[in-house]
Design a protein around this nucleic acid. Structure first.
Length: 318
DNA sequence: AACGCGACCAACCGCTCATTA
DNA sequence: TTAATGAGCGGTTGGTCGCGT
């Protein structure tokens, strides 16, 4: 069964937002906060109508006359609220109206950070945006698609041209060609998973609960790839809420030169099991590959790797 | 001035995941 | 357990603008 559409598209505005719509949405969210997007347009309309009524009463009280028609003609509420899909409202707020959004050009530092994070995370724009305060995933995605991506590809082409000229020996293209046509751009493609809990095995790891770095054997998601988390540990005896954005593995790893790591890891003469960044100890890798945590068709253990960076917050003992 | 073209970016769309009843 | 719903994500589209011819 397919899911119902987020709203009826009939009679809704589409395309660019007007200043009046922005104001209505902003006023509503300032009043009620974010969330419940599906019902927001209707509720925003009710709020607008409430404002109209209050203003009318106020001015009637002040001037002892009926100025309601003046107010309705002069404001932008119109008494009909937002003729927008809730999803559209959410997008408008998150990408444009939020007060903490940073305007202006992306700095060189931000550029460098985006490139490094993209190399690490692939097209996971929301995660990348999470490391760039004030920037939205949409903005970064656009910036990548229009500017950075082209530049990076250009530089890679230059590099590969140089390498070819330095190493003129011909190789069998079937052996050297990556499986994926874009694998030369080798980004770590992961399946996005939200991570709200982690199951921690105290027998294997006798670290303090406040340990911020997950240890080998820590299953970081309870997603579908984990067939039976109870087999791995006992969540009731030792389950931790993992809120790992604050933990920020990315920050730690930002100091690494990932191109070197992933170039090594993607060398075609390595077996899939050995295509793993050297920064992870063997013990950790064994634990990853023994269980169901890692999808077997993946060359690297980036499934778990990305899960570490998936959610926000900190480790908390339950 | 008119036109074509590419770059940029806001907005849309379809999908997946998490939560809830 | 399952279906419905809410929310979020990434890919894509289409309008606008600036620049070159």
């Amino acid at each position: 069964m397919g899911r119902s559409p987020c709203c009826s598209k009939v009679g809704l505005n589409r395309g660019a937002w007007t200043a009046a719509e922005d104001k209505t949405l902003t006023d509503y969210i300032k009043f009620h906060g974010e969330g419940r997007w599906r019902n927001l347009p209707k509720r925003a309309g009710e709020l607008s109508q409430t404002f109209v009524c209050v203003f009318q009463l106020f001015f009637c009280f002040l001037f002892e006359g009926d100025v309601g028609s003046f107010i309705i003609a002069g404001n932008d509420f119109g008494g009909v609220g937002l003729q927008r899909c809730g999803k559209s409202c959410r997008l408008r707020w998150l990408n444009y109206l939020r007060p903490d959004i940073k305007r202006g050009n992306i700095s060189l530092d931000e550029e460098e950070l985006i490139i490094r994070l993209h190399k690490l995370l692939g097209n996971r724009w929301s995660l990348i945006a999470g490391r760039l305060p004030g920037r939205t995933d949409n903005e970064i995605k656009n910036y990548w698609n229009t500017t950075l991506g082209k530049r990076v590809n250009y530089q890679k082409n230059l590099t590969s041209t140089c390498k070819q000229s330095n190493h003129p020996t011909k190789k069998d293209p079937k052996k050297t060609e990556p499986h994926h046509k874009n694998e030369s751009n080798a980004v770590v493609r992961t399946k996005a998973r939200r991570c709200s809990r982690a199951y921690f095995n105290p027998q294997q790891h006798k670290t303090e609960p406040t340990e911020r770095i997950p240890r080998p054997g820590t299953v970081l998601t309870k997603d579908s790839s984990i067939s039976n988390p109870v087999e791995l540990t006992d969540p009731s005896s030792f389950m931790m809420e993992a809120n790992m954005g604050q933990f920020c593995l990315t920050e730690i790893l930002m100091n690494f030169e990932f191109s070197d790591i992933f170039d090594t890891c993607n060398k075609s003469d390595l077996s899939p099991s050995s295509k793993v960044p050297i920064i992870f100890p063997d013990e950790m890798l064994e634990n990853w590959t023994e269980g169901d945590y890692v999808q077997p068709n993946m060359g690297c253990n980036h499934h778990l790797f990305a899960s570490i960076t998936d959610s926000e917050g900190d480790w908390l003992a339950e």
